[in-house]
């Protein structure tokens, strides 16, 4: 039985006993004293638990700062992969505009919250076709230079093969 329930039952018990005694002694000289005693006892029962309640306090503060809703890391990595595929697609489109069509790009990245940091860019030129006007140019170098310019990453992070 909770403390509140016990307290409420105590109040009711005091009042009912007081009323019954008052009814038994109603009209007598003692009735005023009995009423006064009943009121005092009821008041004491009401006030009794307050000091211990104030001492113990209300423990809501600690749990607030422990609460940390967990995000779905699997979903976040899925979305990041999709964004990286879009970015890779952007690089492929850029290379096509620069005269190298059919290149296949893959990007490896690390995420820090919602920020994406590119670790490595892999450009597969095995199935690519270079524009006629650019036949004299080294397509690996062209792809690397354009990707460096496009993504703003260091040349060392770009791997061109095929």
């Amino acid at each position: 039985m909770s403390a509140v329930t016990k307290w409420i039952l105590g109040i009711f018990a005091a009042v009912i006993i007081g009323v019954v005694v008052d009814l038994l002694f109603s009209g007598s000289r003692m009735s005023k004293m009995i009423r006064c005693a009943t009121a005092t006892v009821t008041l004491v029962i009401i006030v009794m638990p307050l000091p211990s309640m104030i001492k113990s306090g209300f423990g809501a503060g600690e749990t607030v700062f422990e609460y940390n809703p967990q995000t779905d890391d699997y979903f976040l990595s899925f979305v990041t992969d999709k964004k990286l595929k879009v970015l890779a697609g952007g690089v492929e489109e850029m290379l096509e505009k620069e005269g190298i069509s059919g290149a296949s790009v893959t990007i490896d990245a690390e995420t820090d919250g919602d920020e994406i940091n590119i670790v490595q860019v892999f450009i597969n030129l095995s199935n690519s076709v270079i524009d006629e006007n650019l036949q004299h140019i080294n397509k690996n170098e062209l792809a690397t230079d354009k990707t460096v310019e496009y993504l703003g990453v260091d040349e060392s992070r770009i791997v061109v093969y095929g």
Partner: peptide
């Protein structure tokens, strides 16, 4: 993309829009 791609419009931003 936080710091990489200064591209406005085109495939990239459309692709991002979809996501």
């Amino acid at each position: 993309l936080s710091k990489y791609v200064p591209v406005i419009g085109g495939y990239l931003s459309e692709g991002f829009n979809v996501i």
